[in-house]
Nucleic acid binder design. Structure first.
Lengths: 239, 239
DNA sequence: TGAATTCTACTAGTATGGAAGTATACCAGT
DNA sequence: ACTGGTATACTTCCATACTAGTAGAATTCA
């Protein structure tokens, strides 16, 4: 089995939570690959703790949809469901479009400026940074949109929805082309600055549907990281 | 402490999951009230199992947002956050409006008929059934809309989002006026049948914003079932 | 009387042993 | 060669004992 990367001091509270955080990180960043087996005993000895906290960490991660516990059989890193990735993307599009609508009448010049600065940062990281770094900036961008729209809490839910999609992005370093996303971000800000509601909505939809364009290639490259691969007939028409 | 209702045979698999399911049910149906304390030992002896499976059930329920585990202190039925209830409602509105848009071009006569039948059932239950029964019918109605729109999986996510809102409905039997909701359902179907996209969208928004109208009264009646009560300045304008 | 302190009875968290179940390798019989 | 049974080495799950940390009552001291 592919070894777990050893701990570099996680100064959290309960051991169970520390283990949970570390494994979650490794799954999202892709160093634990979908389908891989994780044994309670093995992880316990790796982290040098007893089995119980590991078990509880597994339960939490299973609840988050990152692990799959098959009773008396084994625990595995959950494969990414294509169907649910498509569904969460659809939900995200609906919500972000709504945010755009709320945003149009109340966006300020300061917002525009801040967003442009973020895009500049994204441009740098896009050329030289890792996908994980870019994802952080991307989330910050969308979070700013939600805040400016007057519904900051929404981004918490959106980011939770995005976990599976981010796993995809992180494991496909090659196929991942962040510069396209940066350009789309810029298009969104341009239309927002112009106060053109319809164009902004379209720009946002096009941006989020990029995922549907990329997904088939990725699934073809890493078929056994996914399940439900037959679901690849996205219900949305390309904008 | 208010006693837990003893088990009436839950034929599931693992003990941990049985306990989890029973407690979840009691929280959602309101027989375990927000803020109430739940001791691992006490629950364990009530269900006549050891502490460990109870503990694991608690972890699951905490991940679902139904319990709050305060380390070394105690475990409590989570109070309902007004802020997050408002946020989830907003998200739901965005998604259901998107479903309406997808639905308009593809809805069939059979769909309309089925929806009307469901409304007839709702009318019966509204006058004599319990909130829990009505909620089931309500969810079925919205699920049918999602299926007809070609995105059946969306309802799974929506129902998960709705858990906290349903807790509110279940504990407020008095204030709960399902006949208003039935009328709103009928308005939605009417506009859908007419093929009027804009009107259907408006009808759906009005329907879902009913929650924002009801919430202040409910919070005033049961203040200590909530936290964040100061968040009660909903960001949406009444349609 | 009042305030600080210690003691006690809780709590959740962890460690460990063993029970029940599953998959696989091995071997016997056809 | 192939099928069927069995032993074995796993797995997750549950029970129990113990640790550590918290809240509050009782006690002590000013």
């Amino acid at each position: 089995m592919r070894p777990l990367i050893p701990i570099p001091t996680t100064p959290d509270g309960a051991v169970s939570l520390q283990v949970c955080a570390r494994i979650r990180d490794q799954i999202i960043r892709g160093s634990l690959v979908p389908g891989q087996r994780l044994s309670e005993t093995e992880v316990a000895s790796t982290f040098d703790v007893s089995r119980q906290p590991v078990r509880e960490a597994f339960i939490r991660l299973a609840a988050e949809g990152l692990l799959e516990i098959r009773p008396q059989r084994g625990t595995y890193v959950r494969r990414i469901s294509v169907a649910s990735a498509l569904t969460t993307r659809l939900i995200r599009e609906a919500v972000e479009v709504e945010l755009i609508r709320m945003l149009i009448p109340r966006i300020t010049a300061a917002d525009i400026e801040s967003l442009r600065q973020q895009i500049a940062q994204q441009e740098e990281v896009a050329s030289q940074g890792s996908p994980a770094d870019f994802i952080l900036l991307d989330e910050a961008f969308h979070r700013h949109l939600a805040e400016a729209a007057g519904a900051p809490d929404v981004s918490d839910y959106l980011e939770a929805l995005n976990v599976q999609m981010n796993r995809v992005r992180n494991m496909t370093v090659r196929e991942f082309a962040p510069d396209i996303l940066v350009a789309q971000h810029r298009a969104i800000v341009d239309t927002l600055e112009a106060g053109n509601a319809e164009a902004a909505e379209t720009a946002m939809r096009r941006h989020l549907r990029q995922f549907n364009i990329d997904l088939p290639t990725i699934v073809a490259s890493y078929p056994d990281y996914f399940k439900d691969t037959e679901a690849l007939t996205p219900h949305d028409t390309p904008l």
